[in-house]
Write a protein that binds this DNA or RNA. Structure first.
Length: 596
DNA sequence: GCCGTTTTCGGCCCGACTGTTTTCAGTCG
């Protein structure tokens, strides 16, 4: 078993134990072990064989033994027995927002509800509201939650789909007869979630490639198999999560490849526009060719196809028919920001709050990544669950940063904070303290259930505060798990534009918040954006790549992303903003000096 | 389940919020 599979098995044990009402600490030990296994460096088989597993924090004798059994035999009777004693539908019920193990257990024991379908029926009959500990509101919330789940369907996040696609392509390449290969569809367009993988291969010997594809180890079911196209259901463990999704393989000849690449990348809406354009020139356009039977328009690349249609090359991220064709016609497509344009980041956590790496470790990692500046933004005091910093802890961190900056040469640490926006829109630190930071990220972490009006007013009030530099994860959404809080984002963007505030593209792949459509809106409003990793651990610094994907889908150019600026430019801008505030309130100027 | 210069038992992060109750259980982060 792989690391991912072992982690998934341990996680499942923890969940099943929860559903059985086991000691929560025992359950958590399994979840914790799953996380540790997942982030282990090195080969799990070797770690087991060498006994090094014992050195991993949170893995004792019992877990070592279970992990060893899983790794070597691929099974665990303890898990099999647990699975047999808990209906599989109960685990699914946990995905309903607001439903935890205790409630699911009560529903099963008292109403014999075994899965989401039965739960829905029980809610509709009003039985759930009559249970002790439940009520009308809980029942309504459950129904709402079920609807949410069904709306999401079977989609997976981009950060799960991309590595899976890469792995499939590598396996196909290794089998030979593959001249070119690409992942198309929504993955190539970098949609934040996708529901299938479209792999395109160009080969002069399609049969062996196709045979190999349907026999890949991840393939659970073959839905269709033909000479040029096959569909399968894949099952793969990624980041300790079991992923099920469909994958299609198409195989074309070398001369067909550019047309197929364009066609299968989509979007459907974009393709329709292109075909209309071809038609107006008397041509047909499909996945195999463009032009007429007698006079094909030969193209070796997508660029040449676009050029033949009188268009500049449109990057896949823009192919949504949201104005890209008109822009390409006029030669006004944006030159999209690239990962290599980023010079630093502004939203990272350390062990001072809920991060897993120390300030120094983060700094050294940033140096290795070649960043010019690393903004530290730990949580503020009222977010005690995430280890929010007291004012004294903030001042201690400032001193640490000064000391580190004195000996670091390649990277400069910036003093930031992720200050909570309290429910009344005020900030979680006094102005005197806020004045001592280089910049301030303001975020909502509590009171998600407000009305849209109240939440909008709350966030806008925070944006209007002169200390605030940027708004963190503007909607609080978790992809496929939780809708963002209700908020009028356009009003927020307008407020940001009015006060000259920046908006974060939170690049945590489970957030990707702001979403691309609103990024595009922000761009149109002239609101500067910042791509932040919201890193809670060293590897998460590299999450910015997903933020760049969102930025590109949002048409952003380099100059519209604040952290593409050099350190001197950034320092100058932050200083300018601070001066504007402090000169308007002289009393704070003094305290800002004192705190340094 | 794990862990231990509080070391083999008794903690383990815990406070806020919601919706249920009439003092608190469950969920969330």
């Amino acid at each position: 078993m792989t690391k991912e599979e072992v982690a998934a098995a341990l996680d499942e044990i923890g969940t099943l134990l929860e559903l059985k009402g086991e000691n929560p600490f025992r359950c958590n030990a399994y979840h914790q072990a799953a996380r540790m296994i997942q982030q282990l460096e090195g080969d799990l088989h070797e770690l087991v064989a060498s006994g090094k597993l014992a050195e991993v924090r949170g893995i004792g004798e019992a877990l070592q033994e279970k992990i060893a059994t899983l790794v070597t035999t691929g099974r665990l009777s303890f898990l099999d027995e647990l699975r047999a004693s808990v209906p599989a539908g109960m685990v699914q019920m946990l995905r309903i927002p607001g439903l935890g193990p205790k409630k699911v257990k009560a529903l099963y024991e008292q109403l014999h509800v075994r899965d989401i379908g039965e739960l829905k029926a029980a809610c509709e009959r009003g039985e759930v509201a009559r249970l002790k500990g439940f009520g009308d509101k809980t029942q309504a919330k459950i129904l709402e939650g079920i609807e949410f789940l069904q709306r999401q369907g079977q989609r997976v996040r981009l950060d799960q789909a991309l590595p899976l696609a890469e792995e499939l392509m590598e396996q196909l390449r290794r089998g030979g007869h593959v001249q070119q290969i690409a992942v198309c569809g929504s993955v190539r367009r970098r949609r934040e979630t996708v529901h299938d993988l479209d792999i395109l291969v160009c080969s002069e010997a399609p049969q062996p490639v196709m045979d190999r594809f349907v026999r890949l180890p991840q393939v659970q079911q073959v839905l269709a198999q033909g000479p040029t196209r096959s569909s399968v259901v894949l099952v793969q463990h990624i980041q300790g999560e079991k992923i099920t999704l469909q994958a299609d393989l198409r195989i074309v000849t070398p001369s067909q490849y550019p047309y197929a690449l364009l066609y299968f990348t989509g979007s459907k809406e974009h393709n329709i526009r292109l075909r209309q354009r071809a038609l107006s020139r008397g041509w047909t356009l499909n996945e195999y060719m463009m032009g007429t039977e007698s006079q094909p328009i030969l193209a070796k690349t997508e660029e040449e196809i676009y050029a033949a249609l009188g268009l500049a090359y449109i990057p896949p991220e823009l192919r949504e028919d949201t104005g890209e064709i008109e822009a390409a016609e006029r030669g006004e497509l944006p030159v999209l920001v690239e990962e290599s344009d980023l010079r630093g980041v502004f939203h990272c956590h350390t062990t001072a709050s809920d991060g897993r790496a120390t300030l120094e470790e983060m700094a050294l990692a940033a140096e290795r990544l070649g960043l010019e500046y690393l903004g530290i933004a730990d949580h503020s005091q009222s977010l005690t669950v995430a280890g929010g910093l007291s004012p004294q802890a903030v001042r201690d961190q400032w001193q640490q940063i000064d000391r580190l900056n004195a000996r670091l040469h390649k990277v400069r640490l910036l003093k930031g904070t992720e200050v909570d926006i309290l429910d009344d829109g005020s900030l979680d630190y006094p102005d005197e303290l806020l004045a001592g930071f280089d910049y301030v990220v303001a975020s909502v972490h509590t009171h998600f259930q407000m009305s849209r009006e109240a939440m909008t007013a709350r966030v806008c009030k925070a944006l209007a505060h002169p200390a605030v530099t940027m708004l963190g994860h503007p909607t609080g959404r978790l992809l496929l798990k939780r809708d963002g809080y209700k908020i009028d984002l356009e009003a927020v963007l307008r407020t940001a534009a009015q006060y000259g505030k920046m908006i974060e593209i939170n690049a945590q792949p489970q957030r990707l918040d702001l979403d691309w459509l609103h990024v595009k809106q922000a761009r149109a409003l002239g609101v500067p954006l910042v791509i932040n990793p919201d890193a809670h651990a060293l590897p998460e610094l590299e999450y910015v790549r997903y933020g760049v994907m969102v930025a590109r889908r949002g048409w952003l150019e380099r100059r519209q992303v604040f952290n593409t600026r050099s350190l001197p430019e950034v320092l100058e801008e932050l200083q300018r903003r601070k001066q504007a505030w402090l000169s308007a309130s002289p009393a704070r100027k003094k305290s800002a000096h004192r705190s340094h």
